[in-house]
Design a protein around this nucleic acid. Sequence first.
DNA 1: CGGGCCGTTGAGCGGGCTCAAGACATGTGG
DNA 2: CCACATGTCTTGAGCCCGCTCAACGGCCCG
Lengths: 245, 245
Amino acid sequence: MSRPSKILDPLLQKLELMGTLDVEDRKAVLALPARVVRFRALEYVVREKDRAQNCCVLLDGFAVRHKMTGDGGRQIFSINMRGDLADLQNSFLHIADHHLQALTDLEVALIPVSAMVDLAFSRPAIGRAMWSETLIEASIFREWTLNVGRRDGRTRMAHMLCEFALRLELAGLSARDHYVLPMSQEQLADALGLTSVHVNRTLKSLAEDGLVTRTRRSIKIEDWAGLAAQGDFDSAYLHLGLAEA
Amino acid sequence: MSRPSKILDPLLQKLELMGTLDVEDRKAVLALPARVVRFRALEYVVREKDRAQNCCVLLDGFAVRHKMTGDGGRQIFSINMRGDLADLQNSFLHIADHHLQALTDLEVALIPVSAMVDLAFSRPAIGRAMWSETLIEASIFREWTLNVGRRDGRTRMAHMLCEFALRLELAGLSARDHYVLPMSQEQLADALGLTSVHVNRTLKSLAEDGLVTRTRRSIKIEDWAGLAAQGDFDSAYLHLGLAEA
DNA sequence: CGGGCCGTTGAGCGGGCTCAAGACATGTGG
DNA sequence: CCACATGTCTTGAGCCCGCTCAACGGCCCG
């Protein structure tokens, strides 16, 4: 921890999108005690029922959060990337209620919950930013539920391609209209509540309609308005406005 | 507001389930500025895109939170009851991202967001309790998504009957094994991502298997273990343990 | 060059949807 | 107290989106 200021930079960036921090706030965030840990693709960072002691900031790579039914069905409800505070949920409530799994090779910073909570209450600006982050995540969950519960396969897929584009752009990881999906079609299926076979056909059909082109996992959005219309996508639920206000 | 201590009692009860409060904390909660408002069944308390200034504690009756797709499909993702802090989400993020609608005749207390936020940061025990409440809600959303995305109709229905039983019991509103559903089959369908026709057939089939009996909207659970098994139900996601710890 | 994961495509099936009509409740006004 | 309207529950019949099972091809890596 010779230069802690470097390590937690992604967290600071994320929090600054949520609210205004002053110099002292920034210092305090970067001074959080953090331990860097690496995981290989598909390894579990946290498992359901674990007693979580740390929360977990993603520094590099992608992870998913998911739950499984008794008969092995899997539902992914969140894809996390650089800067995401992936496990505030689990750790604050002591017992993890879902899995956190690496999608690609992953680098995370583990921060003791107690340090995180103390900071939130000693520095209200930080507390508010963290709270906002939590609420925005809840909003994304709601949209995800609407997606899975009330939209057909094509619409779901288009919706998720739009959401992912915007979130990658916000995190500064790629352009809105051209990115690489860090997941297999089977994992996409688990996110959308479909089967991998159907995901495949759906992607093909979106491509045939000229909305996207793709080579392997790379997605190029050819017609943003068309894709957003097909996906019934309105970015309001991401509360991107917070970043500007 | 001659006896404010009475009005916000349901809120205090709820927060005390989330964490330990001392005498000063309790006084501060009850001293929150609140305005009591009544709504008739089906009226909207908050609409998506509203600029919410207040958060909203349910004092009596039931409400749902939902979103709609562009083509009119509706997804309910939360049923709220006495004591629930139904709108912290919307109000803290300024622009409502979902609707809050009365299911039955309703009595709510409106509290200015600023008062709520100030209290959360001036009294950490209260802040923690509110934060826990938010995170438990997020956990319920996740389970709801799993339900809608990965379980078949019968399982979804059984799951929801179990969840509702426990939450009613926790709120002190009825016994775990016998209660009245405050919603029509069509509204149930909107919660489960099914159609009302299928909800009807599913309820019938659960009754035929001896898991429940029902007369109109009243549900009697005849075989809790059986229903929980059919519904793939494990109450961990409700984090009821917090109430005891 | 061989093994394994992933993507792609075909064929058939089924859970849940759609459309539609009838049976009950509950309320309202005459 | 009846006539009628309205909303909800119930049941039937047919259909379709998305699932299942299965085979094959491409790409990556050892």
